[in-house]
Design a protein around this nucleic acid. Structure first.
Length: 1063
RNA sequence: GGGCGCGUAGCUCAGGGGUUAGAGCACUCGCCUGAUAAGCGAGAGGUCGGUGGUUCGAUUCCACCCGCGCCCA
């Protein structure tokens, strides 16, 4: 390299072996130093052409009490990708980060850290101190979160983050509750709910369903006898059977239920008589051995009969211990008779209430029996199963004791089995407006994948149940309801703002958390005695209520940002994993429908779950996944983004990720490296030639126009897919472009870049540079959202601009849109591939030139001009033949074959199709000479058929373009061709040795070679070519003595010796 | 038991009423190269889960069955 080229380099040198993770870190450092993210948001106007110009994205708040995992990374990539794209399209996309702070996870973490356990302990410890601890503890991992999010290349505003425990957020939540109250959509109810005795609180119906809280559990199943009170007409003492998997509910038994359509049998053995469903007799064959069926009974025969309670605790209770008839009773499991404990079963409660039975709940908040059940008082109900079974067995009332394996819901935080228990709770009356939710979902939401809309989400909405939003806990938004403590003077006040609280209680309110909020007490205005007080109901809100409030609460709506929120609601886009159809997607939908009568988002991607290669859940304990930090540091964030976002995850499927991260390495190889290689090629030669590329598209050369048109197709292809939220589709078309760019355009154009300055007029070289430059700059823009780091490095290096992410989405209208052109070159590429396969078959290496390639194609006459000028030379060079002959005369190479276009002809001819296809296969068709053909009595017109070529036997021919064309290769090799082949082998050996010796591509050399005689002649004949190709000043063949430093190289099977020196 | 999704090459997955069903990886063989061996190409590999039905024609649509996953009872 000369001194002048070292002083001026238009571009920074591209590392030939780039360390992408290190490049990413540099890029991220520059982003931070120059506040590029902030700029990318700020410079997009809030209004454009009189319209609100925001693309609204909601970031679902994560719970920061743990480290991010692959699930968060996947979501994070999409949460970054779509906003980057929309930003380039000109939209303003704010990305506020949010933290989910309240709720059970935070409380349980604090319990662990403080060494307190349960409500009782917390009350003793002090709610104030406990909540103060939660407030700190809950943000423990925010630093780590910020590291992960930043390192994965995700642009997020951490400065203006929102926290669900902020007083502004909480006030908006209060407002929402009051709105629902005013609309009559909130009520307090006494209901049987899934209840976690471990956290001493009921859970909402979807809390039990999020993730897999159901797991297999072996429970006892008991078939027990109840003695019916005698009645006239009874043949003797009658025992009725009942089946239960919760023996601990038997002390609370208040009734039995039979099904209206079920037939019951009386089975007798001696004086022992048992009643069970006729259809269940077979299941109890063993226990019923020796019994005979005495009679049958209907549900009506049993209705209203009373029985002796199995436990004495509620004996004599009014209306209790009778047989009821209920629709829900089936004979699937058990005996067709259901034991009813209205305090512990949803159906039980409904049926018993309808019959005027009382409800008894002798179990306390922690799941232990109360004094009402004197024999088991203080015992946890699950643990009480055992002694209860023992006692019943001892009394001889157990007909069968078995174990029963079933899926049973567990508490998602403590992993303890839930129980069902009647408690007082506050509900959102979702059932009242679920039809509207179904409608809004239908009309307003675009789901990816589409089946979720009417599938899991649509069905879930259609069957929505009222939402239990109260939690009998401490760390959460308070339920803003105050109630009179004297039922004689009832009054309920619901508050929707701090201002209202301050007005009524006359104090400044600075904290809405417990216990501060609980201290707000005032006399009941409706009580003339002045004795009763208004006190807040104890409960706090389910933290899912807050997640659903996020769109307005993060803006402190309606207290602030009223216009801003209203202009920016609903969101254009959200993304989370698919289980959020029961979680965040749902709570957003509920609150948005109730408050605004509107769907909360327009487009939603719900992605699948990352699993290990055996499709098992990722587990910290098992380490069955590659460490995300190592992946980011070894393969990089772009490769990981490519890998995850182009995976089946994005169409709702699961991803089985191998532990060795090989898929990510592959993504790097296929997705990132080729782009870098093209860029590296460009800068290498541009720096040597001191050329700066220019954006232009007026090049005349076919190859140039081809790749420019391909670039346009790439940009339009990505744009179309991104607009449809088809993210994997956008990635999928990139590799084809890389192939056209690297393995066709650059490879075919290589010599144009190293041509000496004096050769030709220089315009061709200029065109080559500008073409590649234009493609690279345009393509990196289109790829920027998909590969944000590597495109940033390349784009800034090429253009000197600050960031590709501040650029507009490329306008490609100036690039050629020439389908004829791209399809012509694609045809040439096919021709070359077919010709290569012929060489392959005959084991004729490409360096060995051959005489003639004949191309036969029906459209050859139309293409002949093109072939004679450029395409023919292209093919000749690529395939290494002296001559390319183009012809449309099929008879030269074979015969014509008719290929019926069945998709077109089938509908036209119908049943005759069979004959048509048969005739076509047998070649029984005739050319009518006017562009139509006839077979089996049917005339086919243009478009109905194609003509394909069947090559003659014995020729070296291969078909291309789906059989429409044929190439024939002349495979005779004469001495002249042989010699040229040796020369090319020699050139290649020299080049390879140059590279191994560490010479620069511009270094001049001398060559000395020791070769066999037959090759020596070839080298002498082609000496000038060899020297020119290898930048050699001299070529000495077979000298008397070979200088030092000879290396042995292989020339297509012949070993020769070479000495290269720098001239 | 019900709902949703899925079953296509050794693996991971596209596709889609039409003659010869594709991609990537892995495998075998080969090849280009004055950017890239983390490159390019070729080959082999499929009864498109099964059985019926609709149709001139089904891997594709329908029904049933089998298997897997998720959700629910």
């Amino acid at each position: 390299m000369t001194a002048s080229t070292e002083t001026f380099q238009p571009y920074p040198a591209a590392e030939p072996n780039p360390d992408f993770p290190r490049i990413e870190e540099e890029v991220q450092r520059i982003w931070k130093e120059n506040a590029v993210f902030q700029k990318s948001v700020d410079f997009r106007p809030l209004e454009k052409d009189g319209k609100h110009n925001e693309f609204v994205f909601y970031d679902g708040p994560p719970f920061a009490n743990g480290l991010p995992h692959y699930g968060h990374l996947v979501t994070g990539f999409v949460k970054d990708l779509v906003p980057r794209y929309q930003t380039m399209k000109g939209r303003k996309v704010e990305r506020r980060f949010g933290w989910d702070c309240h709720g059970l996870p935070a409380e349980l973490q604090s319990e662990k850290e403080l060494g307190v356990s349960g409500r009782h302990d917390i009350l003793k410890y002090g709610i104030d101190k406990f909540n103060a601890h939660c407030q700190v503890s809950v943000l423990r991992f925010t630093q780590e979160w910020e590291y992960y999010v930043t390192r994965q290349g995700r642009w997020v505003d951490f400065q203006n983050d929102y926290k669900t425990m902020d007083i502004s957020f909480m006030e908006s939540v209060m407002w929402a509750f009051k709105q629902l109250w005013d609309k009559g959509l909130v009520y307090e109810g006494y209901r049987v709910v899934p209840y976690s005795w471990a956290v001493e609180s009921p859970l909402s119906n979807f809390e039990t369903r999020l993730d897999n809280s159901y797991r297999e559990r072996q429970d006892p199943a008991l078939t027990v006898r109840f003695r019916l009170d005698p009645r006239d007409g009874d043949a003797g003492a009658l025992d009725i059977l009942a089946w239960t998997t919760t023996p601990w509910t038997l002390p609370s038994n208040l009734a039995l239920a039979v099904g209206p359509e079920i037939d019951y049998a009386v089975m007798r053995k001696g004086d022992d008589r048992l009643i069970l469903a006729t259809s269940a007799i077979g299941k109890y064959a063993k226990e019923l051995e020796g019994y005979e069926q005495e009679s049958t009974l209907s549900a009506e025969d049993l209705r209203g009969r009373t029985y002796e309670p199995i436990f004495p605790y509620f004996k004599g209770l009014e209306k209790a211990h009778q047989i009821l008839v209920a629709d829900f009773v089936t004979t699937g499991d058990g005996v067709g008779i259901v034991h009813m404990a209205p305090g512990f079963g949803e159906d039980d409660l409904a049926v018993c209430k309808a019959h005027g039975l009382p409800v008894k709940v002798p179990v306390d908040v922690a799941g232990n029996f109360t004094a009402e059940v004197s024999d088991y008082v203080g015992l946890n109900v699950i643990e009480a199963n055992k002694p209860i079974i023992q006692d019943l067995k001892a009394r001889g009332v157990v007909l069968r004791h078995e174990t029963y394996l079933h899926n049973y819901p567990h508490c998602w935080r403590t992993d303890q089995p839930l129980i069902y228990k009647a408690v007082n709770s506050w509900y959102v009356e979702v059932s009242k407006f679920k039809d509207r939710m179904v409608e809004l979902n239908q009309q307003q939401i675009n789901w990816i994948p589409g089946h979720v809309k009417d599938g899991s989400f649509g069905n879930w909405l259609a069957n929505a149940r009222d939402w239990n939003i109260s939690r009998n806990r401490f760390w959460g938004s308070p339920i803003p309801v105050w109630r009179s403590d004297d039922p004689r003077y009832p009054r309920i006040d619901v508050y929707g703002s701090i201002e209202e609280l301050e007005r009524d209680f006359g104090v400044k309110v600075t904290d809405l958390h417990r216990p501060a909020i609980d201290h707000l007490v005032r006399p009941n205005p409706d009580d003339p005695t002045g004795q009763s007080m208004m006190r807040r109901v104890e409960d706090v809100l389910d933290c899912w209520f807050e997640s659903g409030s996020m769109p307005f609460a993060q803006q402190h709506y309606p207290f602030e940002n009223k216009e801003r929120f209203e202009a920016a609601f609903p969101a254009d886009f959200i993304v989370e994993y698919v289980a959020q159809t029961r979680g965040w997607f749902y709570t957003l939908m509920v609150l948005s429908t109730a408050l605004f009568d509107c769907a909360p988002f327009r487009n939603v991607i719900c992605h699948g779950v990352v699993l290990d290669e055996d499709k098992q859940k990722l587990s910290k304990r098992l380490r069955n996944y590659p460490d995300p930090v190592e992946v980011l540091n070894n393969q990089g964030a772009d490769a990981l983004r490519w890998y995850l976002v182009s995976s089946p995850l994005m169409v709702g499927g699961d991803l089985a990720m191998p532990k060795d991260a090989r898929g990510i390495a592959q993504a790097l190889r296929q997705g990132v490296l080729p782009l870098w290689n093209a860029y590296s090629f460009f800068t290498l030669y541009a720096n040597i030639d001191q050329v700066k590329g220019q954006i232009r598209a007026d090049q005349k050369g076919l190859l140039d126009r081809y790749i420019l048109a391909k670039t346009r197709e790439l940009v339009e292809g990505i744009e179309g897919r991104m607009d449809a939220y088809d993210l994997p589709g956008a990635y999928a078309i990139i590799t084809g472009y890389y192939d056209a760019l690297n393995n066709w355009f650059i490879r075919r154009s290589r010599s144009r870049f190293w041509r000496e300055a004096g050769e030709g007029d220089g315009q061709d070289k200029r065109d080559a540079y500008d073409t590649l430059y234009t493609c690279l700059v345009t393509a990196t823009k289109a790829l920027a959202p998909l590969l944000p780091h590597v495109t940033e490095r390349i784009y800034t290096a090429l253009t000197g601009e600050a960031s590709v992410h501040l650029a507009d989405w490329p306008d490609v209208s100036y690039l050629p849109s020439d389908h004829d052109l791209t399809s012509q070159i694609d045809l040439v590429r096919e021709i070359c591939a077919s010709a290569m396969s012929l060489r392959e078959a005959k084991k004729l290496r490409i360096r060995l030139p051959l005489r003639t390639l004949t191309i036969v194609h029906p459209d050859a006459d139309r293409l002949k001009g093109q072939f004679d000028t450029v395409l023919g030379a292209l093919v000749a060079d690529e395939v290494n033949v002296k001559q390319v002959v183009v012809s449309s005369d099929i008879s030269l190479v074979g015969t014509r074959q008719l290929a019926v276009n069945a998709a077109v002809v089938g509908p036209k001819v119908g049943p005759k199709m069979k004959e048509v296809m048969a005739a076509s296969k047998q070649g029984k068709w005739s050319d009518k000479g006017d562009g139509t053909v006839e077979l089996a009595g049917v005339v086919l017109e243009a478009g109905d058929f194609d003509i394909r070529i069947q090559a003659k036997e014995g020729t070296h021919a291969a078909r291309f373009a789906g059989g429409k064309g044929v190439v024939v290769l002349d495979v005779t090799v004469d001495a002249e061709l042989e010699a040229e082949g040796w020369a090319r082998d020699f050139v290649r050996a020299v080049q390879s040795t140059r590279k191994d010796s560490g010479f620069q591509v511009t270094d001049r050399i001398t060559i000395t070679a020791q070769v066999p005689d037959n090759i020596a002649g070839a080298l002498t004949t082609h000496a000038e070519t060899i020297k020119r190709e290898t930048l050699a000043l001299s070529l000495t063949v077979n000298p008397a003595a070979l200088p030092d430093g000879a290396v042995s190289v292989d020339l297509s099977g012949t070993s020769v010796s070479l000495v290269l020196t720098k001239a």
